[in-house]
Amino acid sequence: MQKELKHFLLKLDLTDDEIKSIEMMAPMFENITLEEFTEDMIALIHYGYPQEDISSLLLVNPNIFVLPVESLTKELENITKKYGDVEEALKKDPFLI
């Protein structure tokens, strides 16, 4: 994982072991830049997922954050249409994406 991204995740209060888990669950994290990660975060926030809960979502399903922001936006758009509330839907089933 890129140093800048790891540093950012540590700032989100994740531990080194948790970061290792993320890398094992979603090997594509090796290639994600901090910029790409934050783009995804911003998209989630824009669609109503609370910023303060994003680190927990990351721990449950890190694969969400390996999606290019364009793909994630499409997914969030679909969830909004189908369920209305992105936060509620993703907390109920974090693997919807």
Binding site: T15, D17, E18, S21, M24, M25, A26, V60, N61
Partner: peptide
């Protein structure tokens, strides 16, 4: 299924 991807030390903690 992501349980299989969690780091052992993290699970122990």
């Amino acid at each position: 299924p992501t349980l299989l991807g969690l780091d052992k030390d993290s699970i122990i903690n």
